[in-house]
Design a protein around this nucleic acid. Sequence first.
DNA 1: AACGATTTGTTCGTATGTATC
DNA 2: TGATACATACGAACAAATCGT
Lengths: 260, 260
Amino acid sequence: MVDPMYRQIAEDLRRQIEAGELAHGAKLRTELELREKYNASRNTVRDAIKLLTTRGLVETRPGQGTFVVQKIVPFITTLTGDPGAGSDGDIYRNEVKATRRIPDASVPRVEIQQAGSSLAEELRADEGSTVVSRHQERHIDGTPWSLQTSFYPLILVQRGATRLIEADDIQQGSVEYLGESIGIKQVGYRDTVKVRPPDAIEARFFGLADDGRVSVIEIRRTAFDEGGEPFSLTVRVYSADRNQFAVNVGSVPVGISEVS
Amino acid sequence: MVDPMYRQIAEDLRRQIEAGELAHGAKLRTELELREKYNASRNTVRDAIKLLTTRGLVETRPGQGTFVVQKIVPFITTLTGDPGAGSDGDIYRNEVKATRRIPDASVPRVEIQQAGSSLAEELRADEGSTVVSRHQERHIDGTPWSLQTSFYPLILVQRGATRLIEADDIQQGSVEYLGESIGIKQVGYRDTVKVRPPDAIEARFFGLADDGRVSVIEIRRTAFDEGGEPFSLTVRVYSADRNQFAVNVGSVPVGISEVS
DNA sequence: AACGATTTGTTCGTATGTATC
DNA sequence: TGATACATACGAACAAATCGT
């Protein structure tokens, strides 16, 4: 009937945090002290703390102690925008500029690959057909923000969009570049949003605990040309605890403030 | 230099799962068997399994064993739609109908509350002003799908939209009802998407482990009238492991298939 | 730079409770 | 009811990270 002891301890600590008795950033008592206070073993206290860490309430630092997590100011990205832009770094630049933060995108890592079944389906290409992938790490204010990989059918390069296979940032934005170089016009795009645990690379890049506690948000953007055919796929991955997303439909007043 | 043993064990099990040596739904060896295989203590084996659980790879069932998680077919909800509709149950009905699943919404729980600072700001009302809240549990095919709470300023009821305070489903959709009853026209809406750990109520409703392993997705939809003023806020919460969301901008071909 | 004190991280062994078959 | 398997709890020891002296 009664909860296990480690849950009771966790609940008591949670209550103290919610009630403000333990402020953000404050240090909890040490495991030895809590062990005495609750008259439990150190392992049981540790189980309670582990529960709170998976719930995102506290974090432990070896050699220092356990601390109530700081409140993070989320970064908001608007997914809806100009149907003819925004497939690559455009939204990135606009959003970052608007909020006066300092952006930084790494030099693209360009690879030539064969499309797997999933990628081929999303680009409506044949499985095994050749694609160009451009991978970038993106930061804001020096902290990791997102990992981005864009895929383009190699045919676009053969038709003249040769800069796609150069390891340079396409400053004007890839959508504009494709329009100017080979006349592809983007008339729309579709984003799919999904939440999943991070893989090892993502955990390291975002500085997340590698125990899958914090999720990442994956947004896949498929861009369509005038014929309704997809010509690029951009996959962006964000840390779920620092990012929010907005979707505006119809007429929406500007300057909606951020919510907690 | 080397990883702790429980991580090595977890890594070995993960590799087996990824490689398909352990199929979806397959039962792992018992903790005692794994203890012998890896020459470790049972507690260490349990630490390894715990790591895989938080990563969403396996689940344990008392008295039965540990199993590789089944692949879940995600349910996709499109956030972009008609600017003049979709604030309440409309999208719900449309989406569910289109995919031939069986929807079921509970009778609304209607409450009269005072707006807190956050809610007041989102509705651009005064803090402490009175609002109507309508809360519903929504299922698909009999399984829990989302928790939904809509907030309306009480002034709308006083102006004649009296059905807002009746504990009946508004079959025609609240947006249409507000238009017909008191002439409020929705010209747009804004969704904000955020990921967070579930609270106790959400964990129980979605059947999630109550240790915060699986996140929930919270979508707050603010609806705006012709004057650009917000007149309703709908908060929907989904389980992050079974749901994805789509955003269409511009001209996008229909019938994009679901991705894994 | 070195050292000791403090604090969390890992690993073991053991015992008992609870859920399932 | 008994057997099996996971859940909880205790105690102990050593390792590793951090900090102040």
